[in-house]
Design a protein around this nucleic acid. Structure first.
Lengths: 246, 246
DNA sequence: CGACTGATTGAACCAGCTCAACTCATGTGG
DNA sequence: CCACATGAGTTGAGCTGGTTCAATCAGTCG
């Protein structure tokens, strides 16, 4: 087990054995959800050659705010928490990345930190190789740009939640949003996986861990949800939706 | 004076006389701050041909969330408020655009609303023409993408402010951020123009108008700032910076 | 001069915060 | 196998900063 951020960072750099050559992009289960979807099979082979596969244990750092951006990533399994720390020390989770999502959109320096919530696998593309590939394939840039626009849109969505508002509403809207995101990957289901900690939910919504816990428990008592290991189950979706609008 | 959103929208579409042919991009005062900066003078002439100049009175709509995106804009003077309205009716200001900023980054539909805070002039580029031009000039796409990444970064900055935190801190950080943005355009100054209403500042920071007003008045009483018409003057920058970190 | 919009100010209230105790599951080492 | 340490989550009591609601003030524009 890796214990310091420094060791964890080195794992991602490829210094550890868990980084392997990338193979079989064509069989990749999240390809259709990812920026790679716009590449044809020929381009995919060339793209594949520039990347490597990385497996990380839970709670390890992928990259940190302010670091030189040496690579961009594509999440293939697991769950990633993206956050920033403000001058006064408050941690703001600005998003969660799940399989198919793109990390570290090409800027000189990472402007957020990313770490794994659970065991996670990623495709890692060194930045120079990625930039060179993009120059040759402008439609990939268009796709990356689309992905950035989606990220911006989600950021705006989150702002609506972050501001003032009842904890009930925030949590309900958050649960429904997570449900929709999982549905895109795994199909509709009443079960919502929540691989992150209560603290992360709080830092995402601008609530304390105590309020998150109380609110979930209240919803559970009211038979709106059932709290299960690593997630919740929706019992009364209509009521949850009504809550999220109030 | 245009009174309804509908009339205002038509003004921007070019139905009114205030839309004119675009000229003199080379003399444009904000060109170096804008995405156009990457175009050489030859490209600039071609680009210029696709756009038109639009002048709008204060408090008029540029585009609205959900509308078909028919054009993209570049602010050349004035001040623009960008916002979204949540399901429960709360208005969240997600950003302000000032001269040099790009509006309506190319997506199928606008996903935010934009309206002018004061009299504003914009370059308007019809979407099809813009997309065609970008296809011919991939480095402009790169520039637009950079601009989007900046917008994403600013969105993350704002999230840090939006969450929990004392009104003092939010307002101080907001004032300093506005000061920095104006400094890029007009050079360093103690005067901070605030062309938006108190309500907009509140909707931006997740505070009510009452709190915004009280907080500014308190800072004024404490000789940290002086409240002037359409803005504030920094009297004690060091103290303001200390406040913003607390 | 009124009418109107925006800003300021006051008083009472309340949702979520703080702080702290407690539970529960997990893992560790003797 | 148990004793213990650890970390996450839950729950309680009291506090507080910002909200709400409402009144007042100050420009601005017919």
């Amino acid at each position: 087990m890796l214990n310091t951020f420094h060791e964890q960072a080195r794992a991602v750099e490829g210094g550890f054995a868990r980084a392997q050559k990338l193979q079989n992009c064509r069989q990749c289960t999240v390809r259709t959800e990812s920026v790679c979807a716009v590449l044809n099979s020929c381009e995919l082979v060339a793209f594949e050659a520039t990347g490597q596969k990385v497996s990380l244990p839970p709670r390890s750092s992928i990259f940190m705010e302010g670091e030189q951006a040496t690579a961009i990533f594509n999440v293939t399994s697991g769950f990633v928490r993206i956050h920033r720390v403000s001058a006064n020390g408050r941690c703001q989770v600005v998003g969660f990345a799940m399989p198919g999502d793109f990390l570290g959109l090409p800027a000189q320096h990472y402007n957020v930190s990313a770490d794994t919530a659970v065991a996670t696998t990623l495709c890692r593309f060194p930045r120079p190789a990625f930039l060179a590939f993009v120059r040759e394939h402008p439609h990939l840039l268009a796709s990356v740009h689309d992905s950035a626009m989606h990220a911006l849109h989600r950021a705006h969505d989150q702002m609506l939640l972050l501001g003032p508002g009842l904890a009930n509403v925030k949590i309900a809207a958050f649960l429904l949003a997570m449900n929709r995101r999982w549905a895109r990957l795994r199909g509709d289901s009443d079960l919502i996986a929540l691989p992150m900690r209560r603290q992360d939910i709080g830092d995402y919504l601008g609530l304390t861990i105590a309020t998150v816990s109380r609110t979930l428990q209240r919803m559970s008592r009211q038979q709106v949800i059932r709290i299960v290991r690593q997630g919740v189950q929706i019992l009364d979706r209509e009521r949850l939706e009504r809550l999220s609008l109030t």
